[in-house]
Amino acid sequence: MNKENILEVKNLRTSFFTHVGEVKAIRGVSFNLKKGEAIGIVGESGSGKSVTSMSIMKLLQHPGKIIGGDILFKEKSIVNTSEKEMQSIRGNEIAMIFQDPMTSLNPVYTIGNQIKEAITRHQNVNREEAKNKAIEMLKIVGIPSPSDRINQYPHEFSGGMRQRAMIAMALSCEPSLLIADEPTTALDVTIQAQILELMKKLKKEINTSIIMITHDLGVVADVCSRIIVMYGGLIMEEGTTEEIFYNPKHPYTMGLLKSIPRLDLGENQRLVPIEGSPPDLLKPPIGCPFAARCPYAMKICEKNQPPYFETDKNHRSMCWLLHEDAPKVEVDTCVKRGKI
């Protein structure tokens, strides 16, 4: 394993064994994360982005199961670690922020109690020290008068403040990896801007690696330096943020970029939706999962799953169009460099 990498996911496969059959939620996903790096995983619901994060945290619930591949965290495989060992990693070294701050805090404990629990669980500190640490964390995430706030219950906090408290809790043990699963989806734009600024600041100060899972391309453009685009349980395209936005190679990425309205482009553009809906992962397509909705689909796309084609050192896409024998396709995605 590369020493620089904090996390390596190798050919991960996760399935849910439901009563109607095996839902293949992740069908072979590999990626690396460097120390101090922020990557974004984007995709629509059912693309497998949340299941990827749950697999890394080993929080998959029955009937979900990792059926293949490996996850290396700090050069150690965590796929077969016991639940007890996992508990010392979870929260301590890998922390997670969930989408809905309203339901992921316990309503019958004070905010302070919940942060202190995370601290005393993983660190050898007494109650006084834990309390001071909790106050300090609330201060870092920008909650006013933290020494009073620590005794309040979640219902006394607003949505944005609850998400801040969640971040304070996640960062209280200074984890080396933070997984944020749609951290701002439930929040208003003004509060979202506050939280994103906070995450960027914390990344700089604590040097935490971040995996940001979202469906909002604007959010990843802001926080992440590398982007993974997922669809149908597979990584469709991976590259630096600039490459993905200005030089997308996969028709799905292009489709995503074209279907969002742009404020800076004025009104005269018409949105170009991606027709159809995502594949059923009970019976995943044999070929490329996007073939049924792809405007450039060829015969081979339905029969064979394309391999990854590297178009640049840090840019790979799973698409037959990049094969040397394929017809060349020029697409205007509206996102171009240097017009501000």
Binding site: M161, T190, A221
Partner: peptide
């Protein structure tokens, strides 16, 4: 405050951050 799906614009613009709720 709207996230813009364009990394160059994101880097260069000034955001007016509203305090509080």
């Amino acid at each position: 405050a709207i996230p813009v799906p364009d990394p160059d614009i994101v880097k260069n613009r000034k955001r007016i951050l509203l305090e509080g709720d």
